[in-house]
Amino acid sequence: MAGRRILVQLAHPVLERSRVNRRLAEAAREVEGVTLNDLYERYPSLRIDVRREQRLLAEHDVIVFQHPFYWYSVPALLKEWQDLVLEHGWAYGAKGHHLDGKVTLNAVSTGGPKEAYQPEGYNRFTMRQLLSPWEATARLCRMRFLAPFVVHGALGFETAEQVAPQVHDYRRLLEALRDDAVDLERAAAAQLLNAPLDAVLEAKEVSA
């Protein structure tokens, strides 16, 4: 079996200045079986080709939304993408079944540290809580929503070496998703995919 096909929907308005997302995207591009869809590169005037996007979604089994965390949400183009591409009658609703059963997750970089995204941290809410609109979206479209893969503290990174461990983890995660080596139950229940990454991957390997 060829493995699961992964679509990485990259949304970063100034990728050339990015510290984390650019390197994550480069890693993703190199993983076999991954289609990298660079949304700001494809739609510089924010005019989305809805039919093309729907075709891409239909052709893949795992949808990863990779983006920086802007005001506790996604960059504007990805919101527009959500509004236009996930049509009633196509993605959800009585007759909308094109996304049924697909796996989805957000791969996010945040400026703040991990501790900030806790009930007692200065951001008050956890990443999963802040991403609940995406979880709700996934549910409405009958997709399996996994915990997010998060790179915290992106503002502190300067060199490629500093990001290397996260880039390595991201690559492993994508490969595992492709090879169906992820324990989806645990991945859906986790707070973040990073921390228990080994557990999530190993558990599946043991059970397999």
Binding site: V50, D83, L84, V85, L86, E87, H88, G89, G93
Partner: peptide, 9 residues
């Protein structure tokens, strides 16, 4: 762009 259009919904 039916995404902005709620007729069918």
């Amino acid at each position: 762009d039916p995404g902005w259009d709620n007729e069918t919904l």
